[in-house]
Amino acid sequence: MTVVAAPDQAAKNLKATGFLLLGSLTFTFEVVLLRYLGDHVPFAQIVLFRALAQILFAGVWMSTTVGWVALKTSRPGMHIVRGLFSLACWWLYYASFASLGIAMATVLAFTTSLFTVLLAGPVMGEKVGPLRWAATLIGFSGVVIAAGLDHLKFDPAVIMALFSAAAGAGIVMSNRRLSTTESTQTIMVYIGLVTIVGVLPVAIWQGGFPSGWDIPLLALSSLTGCCGMWCNIEAYRIGEVSAIAPVPYIRLLFAALAGFVFFAEVPDPRFWFGAVLIVGGALLISVRRKARKE
């Protein structure tokens, strides 16, 4: 029997879809800017600006909602772990987009769901069923095809993108632990603080400071990334996961279009076949997770 969402929930799902579409557009705009900046701005500076923007964004959000008292925490160690995952994820994410085609880097970022399944058992003690294992294997076979690994084409940037996705899985798991006691704003502020502490020595060691148009472009890309993250948070706060699960993958089409328009990138048929397997595996995992909760 087909379950139809109540009118109230259907309206929320539609609103959530709008948030996810806006998030996909802003994330795509962010990586276009990063592709330009990555040619001459060190990644440490890009990550530093991103962390500063996150603190600013989350600070304003916190001051207008839960208040600054939310900075008080009894779990500093877990916040440090969460922040280190973000530092690794952001650095490798930006590095992969600087070297790979935008569409390829985007589809590899979607493998976070696959890594989450691999780590769910040993790290979270979750029982992973055969369907989710099958979906994970399908997804990783898509990585092999899309990236040409079956032809032994080992691009270091592909490895960076996959490590970024693995760090993203660490983010998902640490979020699950922290969200039981901490607000989203609190988590975001501490992510920014830990990332700044981790990346600032590298930024100082590399020397120099952005100048000219690089400064407003860095600020714009960083705030764009924060806005995209906020759109995703709001979408999953009000929408049903099973109803909106396919929407984020529209970002792949946005990425392919941006790559073609701005950088004359044209993915080959192998890429699209692999992308279908990656997205299909990730979707199956998402829908199956929702079904298990119900």
Rank of each mutant, 00 (worst) to 15 (best):
residue 292 R to D: 12
residue 45 Q to W: 00
residue 70 A to N: 02
residue 80 I to K: 08
residue 243 A to S: 02
residue 67 G to H: 05
residue 224 T to E: 10
residue 282 A to I: 13
residue 188 M to R: 11
residue 221 S to G: 13
residue 147 A to F: 12
residue 107 V to L: 09
residue 246 P to H: 08
residue 11 A to L: 11
residue 36 Y to W: 11
residue 52 L to R: 00
residue 212 G to V: 14
residue 12 K to Y: 08
residue 34 L to H: 08
residue 181 T to Y: 06
residue 221 S to V: 04
residue 36 Y to Q: 05
residue 116 T to F: 14
residue 258 A to L: 08
residue 247 V to K: 10
residue 42 P to H: 05
residue 163 F to V: 14
residue 240 E to P: 01
residue 108 L to Y: 04
residue 13 N to Y: 03
residue 225 G to Y: 10
residue 35 R to S: 08
residue 243 A to W: 01
residue 83 G to C: 06
residue 284 L to Y: 12
residue 54 Q to E: 02
residue 266 V to A: 05
residue 219 A to E: 13
residue 149 L to S: 13
residue 234 E to L: 09
residue 243 A to K: 06
residue 226 C to P: 13
residue 21 L to Q: 01
residue 266 V to C: 11
residue 195 T to Y: 09
residue 168 G to I: 08
residue 56 L to H: 02
residue 46 I to C: 00
residue 21 L to A: 04
residue 281 G to R: 10
residue 40 H to V: 06
residue 256 A to Q: 00
residue 238 I to G: 13
residue 197 V to L: 11
residue 171 I to E: 10
residue 7 P to R: 07
residue 272 W to I: 03
residue 82 R to V: 12
residue 109 A to K: 04
residue 186 T to V: 06
residue 68 W to F: 10
residue 12 K to N: 10
residue 22 L to A: 12
residue 2 T to D: 07
residue 160 M to E: 08
residue 89 C to P: 05
residue 33 L to E: 09
residue 276 V to P: 02
residue 287 V to K: 14
residue 180 T to I: 12
residue 134 A to N: 04
residue 172 V to Q: 14
residue 221 S to I: 08
residue 103 A to H: 02
residue 202 V to K: 01
residue 1 M to L: 13
residue 200 L to D: 00
residue 102 I to F: 13
residue 152 L to G: 04
residue 53 A to N: 05
residue 138 I to Y: 03
residue 165 A to Q: 12
residue 90 W to N: 02
residue 241 V to L: 03
residue 113 S to F: 06
residue 290 K to L: 10
residue 161 A to N: 10
residue 233 I to F: 15
residue 203 A to V: 00
residue 91 W to Y: 12
residue 81 V to A: 15
residue 203 A to D: 01
residue 15 K to M: 11
residue 204 I to H: 03
residue 283 L to H: 13
residue 246 P to G: 05
residue 289 R to N: 09
residue 265 E to G: 01
residue 75 R to N: 05
residue 229 M to W: 12
residue 169 A to T: 07
residue 10 A to H: 02
residue 202 V to N: 01
residue 191 I to G: 15
residue 109 A to V: 04
residue 44 A to Y: 00
residue 283 L to W: 07
residue 138 I to N: 12
residue 20 L to F: 12
residue 211 S to C: 02
residue 269 P to D: 04
residue 40 H to F: 11
residue 219 A to T: 07
residue 264 A to C: 08
residue 168 G to H: 15
residue 154 F to K: 15
residue 128 V to P: 05
residue 289 R to H: 09
residue 213 W to D: 14
residue 68 W to T: 05
residue 290 K to I: 08
residue 22 L to Q: 09
residue 170 G to A: 07
residue 126 E to V: 08
residue 100 L to C: 03
residue 199 V to P: 04
residue 210 P to C: 02
residue 206 Q to C: 10
residue 280 G to F: 07
residue 202 V to S: 05
residue 85 F to Y: 11
residue 26 T to N: 14
residue 61 W to V: 01
residue 163 F to L: 13
residue 95 A to W: 06
residue 24 S to L: 11
residue 88 A to H: 09
residue 186 T to S: 11
residue 64 T to K: 14
residue 81 V to C: 14
residue 15 K to F: 13
residue 96 S to V: 03
residue 244 I to A: 04
residue 154 F to R: 15
residue 275 A to L: 06
residue 104 M to Q: 02
residue 271 F to V: 06
residue 33 L to K: 03
residue 180 T to D: 07
residue 64 T to H: 07
residue 32 V to L: 11
residue 8 D to V: 13
